[in-house]
């Protein structure tokens, strides 16, 4: 088996860096979490239409979107699909549940730490049962195999989120990451 010397050296160095980073990852995540505004969600309704967003609806969406991120983070970290029902419905719930099921099988998990969210309501249906928002946020994402961090990255991400009114409660039905232009 022929292995180049330089390749071996760089692999060893990079592995060392990865190990250092893996051990420091919790501190990094805490540092991000400690940033002012981390995880906070403020919703702007400027430009929303065709229906004007009622104050109570705006508050409800803020509350539910905060809950959605919190529940999704906990569900993907602990592989618990039962945490999804409070904030997700339909294909989005199925999508997350499927991912959790696969994570369980492979013994992996995902950790998210979301920063401040800049959210704009872009559509509120005339009859008031569906609402679409565009969210721009920075997220720290870690893929873990057991307790070993396989990959960690921080990205600025934009989401299109559709909320629908389900039995008097707003729930996330679609949450789709958009390609960065």
């Amino acid at each position: 088996m022929a292995i180049h010397k330089s390749s071996t050296r760089s692999t060893v160095i990079l592995l060392a860096i990865v190990i250092v980073l893996a051990s420091a990852a919790p501190s990094i995540l805490r540092a991000f979490a400690d940033e002012p505004g981390a995880g906070t969600i403020q919703i702007s309704t400027t430009g929303a239409g065709p229906r004007e967003v009622e104050e109570t609806t705006q508050k409800a969406i803020e509350r539910q979107y905060t809950a959605a991120w919190k529940n999704m983070t906990a569900a993907l970290k602990d592989n618990r699909a039962d945490l999804l029902d409070a904030a997700f419905v339909g294909s989005m719930r199925d999508q997350l549940a499927r991912r959790i099921e696969q994570q369980k099988k492979s013994g992996t998990s995902t950790r998210y730490a979301d920063g401040a969210h800049q959210v704009n309501v872009v559509f509120y249906s005339p009859e008031g049962t569906a609402l679409e928002l565009r969210d721009t946020t920075e997220i720290e994402q870690q893929t873990l195999d057991g307790s070993k961090v396989i990959h960690s990255e921080k990205v600025r991400q934009q989401y299109l989120v559709i909320f629908t009114l389900v039995e008097d409660r707003w729930k996330v039905r679609i949450m789709q990451a958009l390609p960065t232009s």
Partner: peptide
């Protein structure tokens, strides 16, 4: 090596 893919509705190993 081991390959991991994470995405919406997917977590492969």
């Amino acid at each position: 090596a081991t390959f991991y893919l994470t995405g919406p509705g997917t977590s492969l190993k």
